[in-house]
Amino acid sequence: MKLSDGVEQAIHSVAMLASLEDNQVLSAAALAEFHGVSPSYLLKHLQTLSRSGILGTFPGPKGGYYLAQSPADISLLDVVLAVEGPEPAFRCKEIRRNGPNPVPDGFFTAPCQISAAMLRAERSYRAELKSVTISHLLADVQRDDDGTLAARSCVFLDANVRITPQNRSQEPG
């Protein structure tokens, strides 16, 4: 299975936004710069994450993105589904019905065995992604970091974090 580059970019961006305080945001341009990716491609995924309710936006020229949910409430599956969509990776087209000698109709009362096996694998894959939250990932990174990653992020955040005029939790509606 191959996921788009947008999934990796989205997960890293969500993880970075998880470190912000309540009155802080990061611009799409800053997130793209930090990760060395195309700003326009990342922006497309940030907007998708925002529409899905994972991210929030603070408008205006000094605005940016922040987590709209707790990192403990955002799973990898949430991010993958927001970026890739909810459809299963494997979609059976019943090609057994094609060709010069198609399988008789009686074989189509139950799903194709190949499709059934692929859907079982998809359920396992999704269950594993659902079990890993952004909080879990951050704890793993923190446990394995000798201080290098934290220092890199802190320097960047100090230079790029935007302070909003109010705490996001005080925003109307």
Rank of each mutant, 00 (worst) to 15 (best):
A121D: 12
S50E: 15
V161D: 02
P39M: 09
I95C: 13
A151E: 08
Q24E: 11
E21T: 13
Y125N: 13
T148S: 05
L26P: 01
V103K: 04
R126L: 07
Y66K: 01
E128I: 13
L31P: 09
A121G: 05
S135I: 02
G85W: 10
M118Q: 11
S13H: 00
G56S: 06
L46S: 03
P61A: 05
L55T: 08
K62N: 10
N101D: 05
A89I: 15
S169P: 13
G63Y: 09
G85Y: 07
E171H: 09
M118K: 06
I11L: 02
L42N: 06
V7H: 01
T48N: 10
L49E: 09
Y66G: 04
V83D: 09
T148P: 02
R120Q: 15
D158Q: 03
A82R: 05
H35S: 14
D140Q: 13
N167T: 10
R162T: 05
D78N: 09
I163R: 13
A151Y: 00
N167R: 09
T109N: 12
Q24T: 03
L157V: 10
G60V: 15
P104W: 00
V141H: 06
L119K: 01
P165T: 04
A68T: 01
P71W: 15
A10K: 00
D158R: 00
A159M: 06
R97F: 01
F107I: 03
Q47D: 07
F108E: 00
S131Q: 03
V25W: 01
K130N: 11
E21Y: 07
A150D: 10
V37Y: 06
D5N: 03
A72T: 05
A30E: 01
H35C: 13
A15L: 11
I74G: 14
R123G: 12
C112G: 07
I74D: 14
I74V: 14
S70W: 04
D146P: 04
A89N: 14
L67G: 02
P59Q: 01
C92K: 05
V79L: 00
D144R: 02
S40G: 11
L26W: 12
G173N: 13
L26Y: 06
T109G: 07
I11N: 01
R51N: 12
P111E: 09
L3F: 07
A82Y: 03
G173H: 14
Q24N: 06
F58V: 12
L3P: 00
V83W: 10
Q9I: 00
L81P: 01
P102N: 00
R123D: 15
D22H: 07
D105H: 02
I11F: 00
G85E: 01
R91T: 15
R143F: 09
R123C: 14
V25Q: 05
L55D: 08
Y41G: 04
